[in-house]
């Protein structure tokens, strides 16, 4: 449990760091949002409005520390400010709308990519030295394809050339969004291409990692012993080799998740998918700084949470972390 508590402490710190970073970025970056907005308005915003806008951001003449306390207080009351581009909708409302879409799409496809890739990695390690070695360069290529380009190609092939799937959106606009089978079907139908993009984009990385790790583990004595025991091939492979090889994949989750989330955001942009990534893109294009900040915060917190879950899973997978429990 000590391991888990230490991790919990670390993630609490990281969450605090993300909050603070979110506070500091608009105040530290060379271009402050107020001047950027005023420059963008080409003289339509006067000095009076300037103060009002600055107040919106919580940027004032107060000392930093006071601003920081106000900022944390606002966060506690879940007050993320008001969107500028969709004035006066609260940022929190926009976030809560798009969060469901992203968790559904990115969450599910990330897990599918991980499971598929890890499984295939074990298979390739097992069949090592045969045809499987020739798949590796192909997978390396697949792994290097940018998500957004993969999305473009899929749209071109499966939506423009042959119109099997819709090119964008979260659901058919002609259907009223409520819990009906029809609506659910439309959501799944629209999610197919973006999900495929994320799965194809992410699974090759897991395959390569798992294959190399399993090959390495297969040289360990305990795997030879399992084989000498006369255990079925399946048990040797999964119970001994893969069971140990998956551990670094779980610890490496943090590293990979960042890339998956980044790629998924771009994927959402291409498919105009009503999730967090698309909202962030729109916020940046519209220079809607409060929304941008709110979205960055929520995406960071979601990733931190996912990492925490991966670490909890690790405790279950590796008894060595449970020492002294």
């Amino acid at each position: 449990m000590k391991f888990l508590l230490r991790k919990l402490g670390l993630y609490a710190f990281i969450a605090w760091a993300a909050l603070t970073l979110n506070f500091l970025i608009p105040r530290m970056m060379p271009g402050d949002p107020v001047s950027i907005l005023i420059a963008g308005s080409k003289g339509q915003i006067d000095a009076e409005a300037r103060d009002a806008i600055a107040a919106q951001f919580g940027i004032s003449e107060d000392p930093m520390i006071i601003q920081y306390v106000h900022y944390l207080g606002d966060l506690l009351r879940l007050d993320l400010g008001v969107s500028l581009s969709q004035y006066p909708v609260p940022v929190l409302d926009i976030i809560s709308q798009s969060l469901t879409w992203t968790v559904g799409l990115v969450g599910v496809s990330t897990v599918v990519g991980f499971v598929l890739g890890t499984g295939l990695g074990v298979l390739l390690a097992w069949r090592r030295g045969t045809w499987s070695d020739h798949v590796l360069p192909g997978l390396t290529f697949l792994n290097a394809i940018p998500y957004f380009w993969m999305a473009l190609i899929l749209v071109m092939l499966l939506s423009v050339t042959v119109s099997i799937f819709p090119a964008g959106g979260g659901y058919d606009r002609s259907i009223f969004p409520e819990l009906t089978p029809e609506f659910a079907g439309s959501v799944l139908y629209h999610a197919a291409l973006p999900a495929l993009t994320i799965v194809i984009g992410s699974f090759a990385g897991w395959v390569l990692q798992m294959r190399n790790m399993t090959v390495t583990i297969m040289g360990e004595d305990y795997v030879s012993m399992a084989e000498a025991k006369g255990l079925p091939q399946r048990t040797v492979l999964f119970g001994y080799a893969a069971r140990n090889a998956i551990l670094p994949s779980v610890t490496g989750f943090a590293l990979a998740l960042g890339a998956v989330v980044g790629g998924s955001m771009l994927t959402e942009v291409i498919f105009n998918y009503p999730g967090l990534g698309y909202a962030l893109f729109q916020a940046v294009s519209a220079q809607d700084f409060p929304l941008m900040q709110g979205l960055f915060l929520i995406i960071s917190l979601a990733v931190i949470l996912a990492n925490l879950i991966a670490d909890v899973a690790y405790v279950f997978l590796d008894p060595r972390t449970r020492q002294g429990a």
Binding site: L255, G258, M265
Partner: peptide, 8 residues
């Protein structure tokens, strides 16, 4: 490591 790179 944990804060996602792309949004940042």
């Amino acid at each position: 490591l944990v804060i996602p790179g792309m949004p940042l």
